[in-house]
């Protein structure tokens, strides 16, 4: 056990303790928000395994969340011919598995697509899936545009908080184990050079589809948890914007950093709910009124902050923190800072 491991494990235990105690000190409303943060955290963990580690872009993870959400809705409701009326929490793992299988299968066509084409395909998936859910042909399952009513009454913030973090923390550990282990090494080999990975004996197709599957499993669980407190889901519960905001969270949190996803999740949640007021508070000093309750202000914030991160700090907030720490330690040890070369896009 290295010192680094002990420090990380200690930090994790402390974080778990803090998460367990936090609801005693905050309002039920804040607990509800932080419960949602756990949901985004789960989705971001999965997306980061795919994008940050395996290097495969997905602009369609909202669609996988949607598959998870609809799975839970179908299994719990008494709607239509399929009235299983299962306990909603029991359906969460099933939702994850269903999304995971779909993701794994989607990985097969994705195998033949690299870079931009994969981005296109996943983006199209995100745009097409709500239309599919709305379709009359599938209304027997999805409820069409009327959606599906879920049986649970709106839960308290504390309930949602504890439920979601109970899913999030084990899934964080799982993600950590995956990333550290053989799978994670294989994923990174896929990312670094697809050709090199083939020649080093790693089965590229298998690992790419597995990365899609795992990632979609996380998204499915997150989508199910997102559905449970809403009392009803519709095709637009999982819009294109959701997929895009997830990517924003991954980049802001830091591609490749699992702990950074907590920052990404907080970013997603609080830019949406509190960002406009914060912006207005800052702008009040210069006497500018932006009408902060207008729709669209959070999107502008997401977009501009994402741009800022992309143009200045590619490694996201987690990377910035890590760099800050390494600058400090380098001051102490006088070691040069290692820099990662960014691969050039125009080799030709």
């Amino acid at each position: 056990m290295s010192v680094g491991f002990a420090v990380r494990a200690g930090a994790f235990v402390l974080a778990v303790g803090a998460i367990a105690l936090l609801p005693r000190f905050i309002s039920d409303f804040r607990a509800l928000q932080l419960g949602t943060v756990a949901i985004f955290f789960i989705a971001l963990l999965g997306l980061n395994i795919l994008t940050g580690h395996a290097g495969q872009i997905s602009l369609g993870h909202g669609a996988f969340m949607g598959i998870g959400g609809y799975t839970t809705a179908v299994l719990t409701s008494d709607f239509g011919g399929l009235s299983w009326e299962m306990n909603d929490l029991a359906t969460v793992p099933i939702a994850g598995l269903v999304a995971g299988v779909v993701g794994f299968l989607f990985g097969f066509p994705a195998l033949r697509l690299a870079g931009v084409y994969l981005a296109l395909a996943t983006f199209a998936l995100a745009v097409a899936l709500p239309s599919l859910a709305r379709s009359q042909k599938l209304a027997g399952i999805t409820g069409g545009s009327e959606g599906i009513i879920l049986p649970r009454l709106p839960p308290t913030g504390d309930w949602l908080y504890y439920v979601c973090w109970s899913f999030a923390l084990p899934m964080f550990v799982l993600a950590w184990l995956i990333v550290r282990g053989r799978l994670g090494r294989a994923f990174r080999a896929v990312r670094e050079s697809e050709i090199a990975a083939v020649s080093s004996g790693i089965s590229l197709p298998l690992y790419k589809t597995v990365a899609f599957g795992i990632s979609a499993f996380y998204a499915g669980v997150a989508g199910a948890l997102l559905a449970i407190p809403t009392t009803a889901i519709f095709p637009d519960t999982y819009p294109v914007a959701l997929s895009i905001i997830l990517l924003t969270g991954v980049v802001v949190g830091g591609l490749g950093s699992l702990a950074g996803m907590a920052i990404g999740a907080l970013f997603i949640q609080f830019i949406q709910t509190d960002g406009p007021q914060w912006l207005q508070a800052v702008l009040d000093r210069v006497g500018v009124d932006i009408n902060e309750t207008a729709p669209g202000v959070p999107s502008v914030l997401y977009g501009l902050l994402l741009l800022a991160v992309l143009l200045t700090a590619r490694s996201g907030v987690a990377g910035l923190l890590a760099r800050g720490v390494s600058v400090l330690t380098n001051r102490i040890y006088h070691r040069p800072i290692k820099r990662q070369a960014t691969p050039s896009r125009r080799e030709a």
């Binding site: 895009i244 990517l247 997401y302 977009g303 960014t342």
Partner: peptide, 25 residues
Amino acid sequence: EQASHLTVIMVTIALFVTVNGFVLW
């Protein structure tokens, strides 16, 4: 211009969100 595909795609995605939000606003 010289960054990876992933970065450039993200930049256009950031534009997507910003422009959409700006019009809504």
